[in-house]
Nucleic acid binder design. Structure first.
Lengths: 154, 154
DNA sequence: TAGGTATATAGAATATTATTCCACTATTTA
DNA sequence: TAAATAGTGGAATAATATTCTATATACCTA
């Protein structure tokens, strides 16, 4: 479904979505027509999901990243659906993964400071279907990337 | 440094970087000139770091997300610098945070399958300055967002 | 109060880019 | 061989970004 040109195109667009069709074509040694068509096809097919601006969290007053581990003792479909929907609607939770193992969920939370994170935890604690297990504060980000590798292996 | 209009502008651009100046101006009930200037200013100031395409990891053959916890028993500046630089150069590691606590590091890794993740772990195991502590496999993503909240509190 | 600064409106001109077409070519496949 | 697929090269048009100018407004300060 995706050939080598597609994958290299995705690599470029993941690094910089502002590259023009012309620049992309040059870097891939092709003309603009097929590049344009490939991009549109991948947008249509959902390979490219969206284009976004990445901003500096510190500069908008969110310097704190905390990983919050949560378990769900009563693991029912209703509890799962309700908890996950609640999480999706919390803007401070940037990422949330359902994990295999005893922890069940890991939430990546951004906060202004510890005090605000404490408030966040209180919100979580109100949810009856989960138990907050532990929080791990990030000292700093070693790496923060949105670039999914497109070449096989590494 | 950032006023309310800036923050609302950032909220829009974080959702969809393809919005035109005109559309942004309309949504903020302003004219195009100040919107254009505000964006350029925030790009210059590093508030907006970059524009990227977000792609569907599954559709490029990376359906697996694993969180890998690593500790560094001999916590020296040299070991820290070397390990972190190694991590930055591993394309399968999308995110890496230095955590407060016993775990030290958490890596978010994307992989094609468990077999490839095993190979990744073997690569990590070669690094003499760290000890791989545990891996947590993500069953699925409840939420995946790059949108840092720009309004105070939540 | 008067002047200066910063930021907005409104409109226009130009440059750049995206988007859509078309004719033609090369390669692969049925 | 004929049809289908994907590319080249070029061109036309529409949409956008970018740069400017003139003017208005609010706010701060001397």
């Amino acid at each position: 479904m995706l050939d080598d040109v597609d994958l290299r195109l995705l690599a470029l667009l993941q690094q910089n979505a502002k590259l023009t069709i012309k620049e992309l074509a040059e870097q891939l040694s092709m003309t603009t027509t097929p590049i344009f068509e490939r991009i549109k096809r991948m947008e249509r097919d959902g390979v490219i999901e969206r284009y976004v601006a990445l901003i500096n969290a510190e500069k908008v007053g969110r310097p704190l990243v905390v990983f919050c581990n949560v378990s769900m003792p009563d693991y029912t479909p209703e509890n799962i659906a309700e908890f996950e929907e609640t999480i999706r609607q919390m803007p401070d939770v940037l990422d949330a993964y359902h994990l295999a193992g005893t922890i069940d969920y890991q939430l990546k939370v951004v906060a202004c400071d510890i005090k605000q994170y404490a408030q966040f935890l209180q919100q979580l604690a109100k949810l009856p279907m989960i138990r907050v297990h532990s929080s791990a504060i990030a000292l700093y980000a070693v790496k923060q990337s949105t670039v999914v590798p497109t070449t096989l292996k590494s």
